[in-house]
Write a protein that binds this DNA or RNA. Structure first.
Lengths: 144, 144
DNA sequence: AGCAAGAGTTGTATAAGCCAACTATCTGTT
DNA sequence: AACAGATAGTTGGCTTATACAACTCTTGCT
């Protein structure tokens, strides 16, 4: 059993390596939808619509970045804006039908890439790995 | 115990969330050394020197990108090049003394951020988590 | 009425990345 | 020995993602 520090070191290195590669491989497998766009669309689906400001806060992005990303997604007919009738400053963002379909398709491809990397893992290991990631990210979110 | 598909789904979602945040938070905590630069320097330390091509392959970067990154790191006196006497096409990259010191300092800050997120984990969980990440990344590398 | 705060957009600058074209070196085949 | 093809790295040109700052419009409070 490795010592605590070694494990922390490995976790740090491997998480970073993963982060480093994720964007590049996402760009390769899905030239039509960057990792950022994908996560924004996922968030919209998850929350059943939200404001640009919420996206910025959740992903630590500047609001101008989100504004431009959303504009691009709207141009691609993946997202639509609905002005909040109670507060005309606010635009609630929703997936379009096309957005839902595209997201589903990209998600499926991504899932199969993950599955490929996880072949040979038994169910117990998968569920423990998933649990560790959840635990880690929950702590990261709490501390950020 | 969750079903296999659920675990894969969770792993995908959580790894992606991590990747999405990593760059932003790295940029905030270490404006002096981007996540990319940091990982390149770490790799050099780890391997005790390597070629630009190896960096490109390992991180799925274009060789031109690595070339410019390395040039920048050299300008900052963090990295030096040594032409391979056996093959004059090759430049073996090494950390300079300043590079070693800078890396150590940034690594310490990063490590403490990771440790903060991993407080309360016992040693067995840490070492299992580390092993899972290694296994996952090895598969990702093999398949890319 | 007036003003501060919030939501979003736009101007500007920078960094990171890719592709393609190039040089220099090496290796294997004839 | 000579040439062809492969490999390492650099450079030019372009695109995209991002941040920061300045702006508009709306809202809510005094």
């Amino acid at each position: 059993m490795p010592h605590r520090d070694e494990s922390v070191e490995t976790i740090q290195r491997e998480m970073t390596a993963f982060a480093r590669r994720a964007r590049a491989s996402a760009a390769r497998t899905h030239p039509e939808l960057s990792l950022v766009s994908f996560t924004l669309l996922s968030h919209l689906e998850d929350r059943q619509g939200c404001r640009a400001t919420d996206l910025a806060a959740h992903y630590l992005l500047d609001k101008s970045t989100v504004s431009r990303q959303v504009a691009a997604l709207e141009r691609l007919d993946l997202v639509e804006r609905r002005v909040d009738p109670d507060d005309h400053r606010v635009q609630v963002l929703h997936l379009t039908a096309h957005g839902v379909a595209t997201l589903a398709q990209v998600a499926a491809t991504r899932r199969s890439a993950f599955e490929e990397r996880l072949t040979g893992w038994d169910e117990a290991d998968l569920s423990r790995f998933a649990a560790y990631l959840l635990r880690y990210n929950a702590a990261a979110e709490r501390l950020s």
